[in-house]
Write a protein that binds this DNA or RNA. Structure first.
Lengths: 204, 204
DNA sequence: CTAATTAGTTAGTAGTCACTCATTATACGG
DNA sequence: CCGTATAATGAGTGACTACTAACTAATTAG
């Protein structure tokens, strides 16, 4: 049997937990299942994490890191506010496609009731995303690109809701469509509504 | 100890399950907890439902009935398409406020993996809601009230997403605000974007 | 008032849960 | 190539899981 350094093993266990949370459901995920998937015995998990809650916290940290990185790339690759909004939302959809357990974790009892730390981590993460959207929406409005009667705060919530709504449709529909592709289509429709004078003022 | 007719008891167990699903989480809800809440011994549950899955199916039927009734009221009380949309969305938000377990059930492993029947029930319910929204959005567009460049299908998905996004914000924020009230505000903002000539053509 | 029906109980099943403890085996620095 | 640090194991804990079987007691029909 192979031995790994504690640091590597810890990361391996956390990412495996995130993957298994999708297959088994966050609240039915057992340390036994994690151990099997990693190729260890069940008590070995507790050598790396004192409690199961600590394991979830590590998962939250992993999610935070990868999402933060994805947002940074999205912002670095684009300068125009509207392109940045698209890039941010698409990054989010791709993260969910890669880690489909994330929406379920949001509604898990682990997060909702038992693990206040986990809840706070995810809440902070979501508020940071909202902040990024808000900044771009404000920029777009101030630049005269978006309708002045749309409060940037409302726009941010609408875009976050779009992501979450698509995620639910995706999973209820057995993930039969490409989340990021369909999401991009709907995002386009929503942004079209945000824009000033969308080019049909020649109506009537 | 009081005895009730099987029919009444069955309904009582189902509604209690729905309530407890919020407190304990759908995937951690035990038949013992249900029995305690109803005031019976645990095996008594299995006199009324052959398996736990059957109990969940009864919960889904309860949800279907109350939501369908709420939709009917919403449509009966309004004739104009836009008012009907508002009434439908508000009805949905109030249902979630009254039964906060509903969003979590959507992401439960019970629904996602183990109970295909439950999944199908909820999926059908959501598609019926989408159909109702779609009908009103089409009417509004055809009447020249909503922008012709907004596909009614997209509008319906945006409104459903709004409900789900608000629900997540509500629960992540410890349900610190009134879901229906805040939702109405955001819905107003979204519908404003749907409308034709929102009254700021006197700009510049 | 009695007999049939049936809601509910008590006692128990095999299986699973997170977590502990003492021991073993592996990697690595000297 | 040996000694130390430590990753991992084996065996086991009590508590809980959905579910069963046999029995009891409350309701109701005749």
């Amino acid at each position: 049997m192979s031995r790994k350094s504690a640091k590597n093993r810890k990361a391996e266990i956390a990412t495996t937990t995130l993957r298994l949370a999708d297959e088994l459901g966050p609240d039915r995920l057992t340390t036994q299942a994690v151990a099997d998937a990693v190729g260890l015995t069940q008590p070995a998990i507790f050598r790396h994490f004192p409690t199961k809650q600590a394991l979830w916290q590590a998962v939250a940290d992993t999610i935070t890191e990868t999402m933060t990185a994805a947002w940074e790339v999205a912002l670095a690759e684009n300068t125009q506010p509207e392109q940045r909004l698209v890039a941010l939302v698409l990054a989010q959809l791709r993260q969910i496609e890669a880690n489909p357990a994330i929406p379920a974790i949001l509604h898990s009892r682990e997060l909702q009731i038992e693990n206040a730390e986990l809840r706070e981590s995810i809440r902070t993460l979501m508020m940071r995303f909202q902040g990024l959207l808000l900044a771009e929406l404000t920029r777009a409005r101030d630049a005269g690109l978006f309708r002045p009667d749309l409060a940037p705060e409302d726009g941010a919530v609408l875009l976050i809701s779009l992501v979450q709504g698509m995620a639910i449709r995706w999973s209820l529909g057995n993930r039969a469509f490409a989340l990021a592709t369909e999401g991009a289509r709907l995002l386009d429709a929503q942004l079209q509504l945000f824009r000033v004078l969308p080019g049909w003022e020649d109506r009537t």
